[in-house]
Write a protein that binds this DNA or RNA. Sequence first.
DNA 1: CCGAGACATCGACAAACGTCGATGCGTACC
DNA 2: GGTACGCATCGACGTTTGTCGATGTCTCGG
Lengths: 116, 116
Amino acid sequence: MTSDAGLACCTPLATGAAMSAAQAEQVAPLLKALADSVRLRLVSLIAASPSGEACVCDLNDAFDLTQATISHHLKVLHSAGLLDRDKRGVWVYYAVRPAALAAVANLFDTAALAPA
Amino acid sequence: MTSDAGLACCTPLATGAAMSAAQAEQVAPLLKALADSVRLRLVSLIAASPSGEACVCDLNDAFDLTQATISHHLKVLHSAGLLDRDKRGVWVYYAVRPAALAAVANLFDTAALAPA
DNA sequence: CCGAGACATCGACAAACGTCGATGCGTACC
DNA sequence: GGTACGCATCGACGTTTGTCGATGTCTCGG
């Protein structure tokens, strides 16, 4: 139950009609996974990486946190479907899943162009 | 400490350089406020309202939750700077603060156009 | 086969969160 | 003034969350 297939489409926040309770409960976990400064930086670090992916060992050095804590945060992001996990030899590489971020972006996209 | 003045600009998730720890800690509260299905629906309901605002009494009817709980959620959204509060007579009207939503949208905007 | 290193998992703990019932505070109407 | 109503606040509760140290699992090199 780790990867989410149908996380796509969702009514943007202000598209004329309010979003349904079911849709809210579908998107909320994505936001919940991102609603943490550490996880936000993790995603940012991975997304900003030239290769589009980052090794856990590198991510670990970017924080003053235990390896266990970073691993936990990565697990949360992976479980939410935001990160892809790829084990190569001894190292594990995480990459952002563009579709997931796009789903979230879609939420706020239309909302931004509210009345001035 | 309820309204936030400098919630604007923030490095989008994948703009080439990773976001700083300070920026992450600035944006995370906004996401945290939105990372709840009830609050997401509240914002959606208010944003989708024709007048751009909604009375608490109406919002209250849209959920199977106590009035105290809805009031609490509205307080969280208001404290995060996402909602404006306007008391008119006996009723209180909440309206979305476009700038706050735009700040969040900005985060994911550039991120969506990651490598294919 | 054995040791070392890279991550994940486990168990624990304090802090934060979502929800509720009860109560307080304004406002309007009789 | 009294009463009814809309909303906020308070106190309490069970649950979830972020963090840690310790331990487990896998992989590679000797």
